[in-house]
Design a protein around this nucleic acid. Structure first.
Lengths: 252, 252
DNA sequence: CAGTGGTCTAGACCACTTA
DNA sequence: AAGTGGTCTAGACCACTGA
């Protein structure tokens, strides 16, 4: 049989473009490529079809395909080099890092995370809380304190402060998360700034979390804002360091 | 005097576009706006000139200006809404979590960091290290262990492993950071995945860092890769939690 | 309703990589 | 020299917001 020697077979990913869909075309492309990478159809190091060919094959313009590629670069899924092409980023990286099994593993064990609401109170905000939330002094502030379990194990104590006028329902907190509750009220988070640190647990925290006093905790302080630029929420969370860590991919 | 009643004065940011520069036009725009935001000329909540007007004023196309705006959105500096406009995000934003070495961070803050190299050795890699670096078994691996000081205080213990064939000079490590040393050899980092966690210090770590055993430490594990998709470095760093935290801005 | 950002097109020229 | 991504242009139409 006529086999070309060592010819590189370019994997043509099956991408279906639906112009009637609400999903933008560039997102349809990047989603399809994400799936191909996640499923292993495109393995780390594999060459991705170049944007000119892909545009021609799908009947789209190059900027549209390019936008999809940029999404993937930003997610850390592929790397690109002028003159050289686009390749799938090494993702065995994450498997290696995952040696220290964590919350993901607890979740993967099939036991859904649950939440107990420790506190749900609306009161006149302190100078500090209204300052952070960018509210007038003495405005109403909702304070929520929750204990989060995963796999039956206590995992985190989460304290959140929100402007009282966008307070979600108490009942919703137990079933969905805080952000899902806000979304149901038409409030979406556009972005946030956060700070990750560490300290040791107080006696009260240790008791709630089933740790000893002095156990290491990961701390997260976050301020989230809507696309209108309004501050929606201030969160202060503490996680058992033995069970939780933060994974992220960064670029450039 | 003739004062218009509550008229919104749109601040026209002074942007000089240099078409002969190597810096891309969109980056010149985003840099100018970043500066305006950082300096306080554009305050949180302030309206940013819309992209059509800005393009006309600067004599550029809309996509070019748009690209600059997208950079700012991704950095968490502004929020945009269709029909409403672009506003500067609430600036509880501090130092971004950038892919730079700690040395660069401290340098930017004006503190004088110093480094002591505790170990600099090239040896046959263990199964674990060659696995993480995606090298053939028994390949040469450079291990660097450094103690970093800031303001005379010990701050972090940094352990890094690199393929031996891209080992930077021992002498360069003391003066520049690790990434700067690699950059001088023509090796640039395209991206990385990392995990942030916490634990308590061992006796040995506590002694090096001037803490007591049991003091909380922030841990960072990172795998960095080049734009060619090659794994460049594996780093395991521990920071005194009392002196260090990670800031970042996230979007969507 | 006018203003604004979100999406998309069909090209163009350049810089870099690889062979 | 050929292939690839990086940048840029000059338009177009649509969806959403706000007065």
């Amino acid at each position: 049989m006529c086999e070309s020697d060592q010819e590189v077979v370019l994997t043509e990913i099956d991408i279906v473009v639906d112009r009637t869909s609400d999903v933008p075309l560039h997102q349809q492309i990047s989603n399809a490529l994400r799936t191909a990478i996640a499923s292993g159809q495109l393995r780390p190091g594999a060459r991705v079809e170049n944007e000119i060919d892909l545009a021609a094959r799908l009947g789209l313009s190059r900027p549209t395909v390019r936008r999809a590629m940029e999404d993937l670069v930003h997610s850390g899924l592929v790397t690109r080099r002028r003159g050289s092409g686009t390749v799938v980023a090494p993702s065995q990286v994450r498997r290696q890092l995952k040696l220290t099994s964590l919350f993901d593993d607890l979740e993967a064990e099939g036991r859904r995370p649950t939440t107990t609401v420790l506190e749900f109170s609306i009161a006149v905000g302190t100078a500090e809380s209204t300052g952070i939330l960018d509210l007038a002094p003495k405005s109403g502030v909702l304070t929520i304190r929750r204990l989060r379990f995963a796999g039956g194990e206590p995992l985190a104590i989460m304290t959140n402060e929100l402007p009282a006028d966008i307070a979600p329902d108490y009942s919703a907190l137990g079933t969905c998360g805080l952000y899902a509750s806000l979304r149901e009220k038409g409030i979406t988070i556009a972005g946030a700034t956060q700070r990750i640190g560490a300290r040791v647990a107080t006696h009260a925290e240790a008791e709630l979390l089933g740790e000893k006093a002095g156990a290491p905790l990961l701390t997260l302080d976050r301020v989230a804002y809507s696309d209108a630029g309004r501050i929606i929420e201030h969160g202060h969370h503490v996680y058992r360091a033995s069970l939780y860590s933060f994974d992220m991919s960064i670029r450039q």
